[in-house]
């Protein structure tokens, strides 16, 4: 009998777990919609600024002015990795895939006998990476949905100051690119030197255009570069935010389904046992009656 009661308890507890995962799935689904909208509406700006950047940079190549923010500081071999993760767990392999690719990057850097530093955005990644790399993590910030632009600005200010002080040479950011609700792609993007996604297409026509600059080229570029840095970080945070909700939704969907399966199995064995007890009792009664 006690076994029956245990089974009953187990079924109840799995059932309430399923309720929780189902609720989390729905919360994630509604948050996903909003996060996706923000991420998508931020894309035009970051694409535009990258286009202007590359058309400017194409013109700068010939001139003698070179800016560290654009090309990186080749004298310094320290590489900064920015890892964008989430503040909360329960979202499947979302954070661990970032950590894994940071580790791979670190091995790569070590093979080139260079040094590295890590900046973490998001509590989960910071917890793990601090444990592995200790002091190499120079800064860790939580991602708060409300002020992700300010956060991006702070990080880019930090990067600019550190570059001015010649504390590092190059920098890249690793984040989950939101592709669809069920798939996020771990992406590594070089921030310093500046990655030129649009270089190829703009090279063809923009080389023919002679831009007028107001004020001069160098001044605009030194204004534009930190801005671009901020925007690229901001974009990464937003993409990662949308990806997090997508990952959580998928993870919770799986969990809900698994809980359902488990309840079915438990119910089956509960009913079997109940039936076995009833049969046992019936046999007792029948054999008792026969003995009379």
């Amino acid at each position: 009998m006690s076994n029956l009661k245990e089974l009953k308890n187990q079924i109840d507890s799995v059932r309430s777990t399923r309720k929780i995962t189902q609720a989390m799935k729905m919360v994630a689904a509604s948050k996903l919609r909003r996060a996706q909208e923000t991420a998508e509406s931020a894309r035009p700006y970051s694409e535009k600024i990258a286009k202007i950047m590359s058309s400017l940079a194409a013109g700068m190549k010939d001139s003698e002015v070179s800016l560290d923010l654009l090309l990186g500081n080749n004298d310094n071999s320290i590489h900064i990795i920015i890892a964008v993760t989430s503040d909360r767990g329960l979202c499947g392999g979302f954070n661990s895939s970032i950590v894994k690719s940071v580790k791979n990057k670190v091995i790569d850097i070590k093979n080139k006998s260079s040094d590295f530093k890590i900046i973490c955005l998001g509590k989960k990644g910071a917890d793990i990476l601090r444990g592995v790399y200790g002091d190499k993590v120079i800064s860790a910030e939580n991602i708060n949905d409300k002020n992700s632009y300010t956060l991006a600005e702070n990080i880019s200010n930090l990067l600019v100051t550190k570059l001015d002080n010649k504390e590092y040479g190059t920098c890249s950011i690793i984040f989950n690119q939101f592709k669809s609700a069920i798939s996020q792609i771990v992406t590594e993007q070089s921030l310093i030197p500046c990655s030129m996604e649009y270089e190829e297409e703009s090279n063809n026509k923009d080389n023919l255009i002679n831009f007028e600059f107001e004020p001069d080229e160098k001044e605009i570029l030194s204004d534009l570069l930190p801005k671009n840095l901020t925007i690229q970080i901001y974009k990464a945070i937003l993409e990662s935010g949308a990806g997090e909700q997508g990952a959580r939704m998928a993870a919770m969907d799986n969990a809900t389904r698994n809980a359902g399966e488990m309840i079915d199995k438990l119910n089956l064995s509960y009913n079997r046992q109940r039936q076995a007890i009833i049969t046992g009792e019936l046999i007792e009664i029948i054999s008792g009656a026969e003995a009379l």
């Binding site: 831009f211 600059f213 107001e214 605009i220 534009l224």
Partner: peptide, 19 residues
């Protein structure tokens, strides 16, 4: 309002980048 003063852009303007 550009950094170096206000300016207008009409169709046929030269290629320009300004802050």
């Amino acid at each position: 309002s550009g950094t170096e003063g206000d300016f207008g852009v009409l169709p046929g303007h030269a290629a320009l980048v300004s802050s």
